[in-house]
Design a protein around this nucleic acid. Structure first.
Length: 277
DNA sequence: TTCCATGTTCCGCA
DNA sequence: TTGCGGAACATGGA
């Protein structure tokens, strides 16, 4: 599930359940999940710090851990960086409650509650970095489409260096950070653009349509809390599992592979580009 | 048992 | 250099 809207909701969950709390201990029962993005020393560096701020860039979530009180102010903050892989999520537990199955990292607080990073398939990653910019630079992440400075031409600017299929470009985190397989399909559907259309063949009105559709899709998913049942009925997303008909015109949806991912689209609304196969 | 899956990354080929 | 297909990663669910 974790694409940009999901991670944004995890960020808000984190604010509710971890921000302002003092860390008493960190347990990492699964070393595979810890450290590849940065330092693995969560259990040594985090205790006695307080989570003071969060940030999100694409599918990455950052949480700043500050040293409380004035006395040790000179000590630099560290940032926890989290990536949710395919199956990562947060669970908050109260004092005395057992950690759920597949708990990979457990942040325990002074009040004995805990925030748990749960990840059944173990593609998620957690680590410490000095600042988010370091991670963003090392991964060479593209701009976040919901960032304030994305701009009205942001999408075109981000993808214009690419030349392949537009869906593959949307999925390239180095071009644009945060869009995954599901929301790429949805944005293209709502913009009426074929997933295999070439980026360099998009017309100006298609660029603005796609940007508007993408932002609308991401914002709506966040507003609706990404509950599949809560998404608008006209969306492709609500149909992709059962391989049904287009929610707009009733035509049978087409299924193919673009950029290595299963892709659904409406062959009537999203015209096949004549340039490519 | 086999196939598929929202994630990233790497390899080989054109 | 760019793009892309395919495979790998780890695991659960249909």
């Amino acid at each position: 599930m974790p694409e940009l809207p999901d991670v944004e909701l995890f960020r808000r969950f984190f604010i509710r359940h971890a921000l302002g709390r003092r860390i008493s201990a960190v347990a990492c029962p699964d070393s595979l999940v810890v450290g590849t993005l940065g330092r693995s020393s969560l259990d040594r560096e985090l205790p006695r710090r307080v989570f003071g701020a969060t940030r999100r860039h694409g599918k990455y979530l950052f949480a700043r851990a500050d040293w409380p009180g004035g006395r040790k102010k000179q000590k630099k903050p560290v940032w926890v960086v989290l990536h949710f892989g395919m199956t990562g999520s947060f669970v908050s537990i109260e004092a005395g409650q057992a950690a759920p199955p597949y708990s990979r990292v457990i942040f325990r607080f002074d009040d004995r509650s805990a925030l748990v990073f749960v990840c059944p398939r173990r593609f998620g990653r957690v680590a410490l970095v000095d600042c988010p910019e370091d991670l963003i630079a090392s991964k060479r992440l593209g701009p976040d489409p919901l960032a304030a400075d994305f701009g009205i031409q942001g999408l075109r600017r981000a993808l214009s260096s690419r030349r392949g299929a537009v869906k593959a470009a949307l999925l390239d985190q180095k071009a644009l950070a945060g869009v995954g397989n599901l929301y790429a399909d949805e944005a293209l559907f709502q913009a009426g653009i074929h997933p295999r259309a070439r980026v360099d063949a998009l017309k100006p009105e298609q660029w603005s349509k796609l940007q508007r559709a993408l932002l609308r899709v991401l914002r709506t998913a966040i507003e609706r809390d990404v509950g599949w049942d809560r998404l608008p009925r006209g969306w492709l997303l609500t149909r992709r599992r059962e391989r049904q008909s287009c929610p707009r015109c009733g035509a049978p949806l087409a299924q193919t592979v673009v950029g290595g991912r299963t892709t659904y689209f409406c062959p009537r609304h999203q015209r096949r580009p004549d340039v490519t196969r």
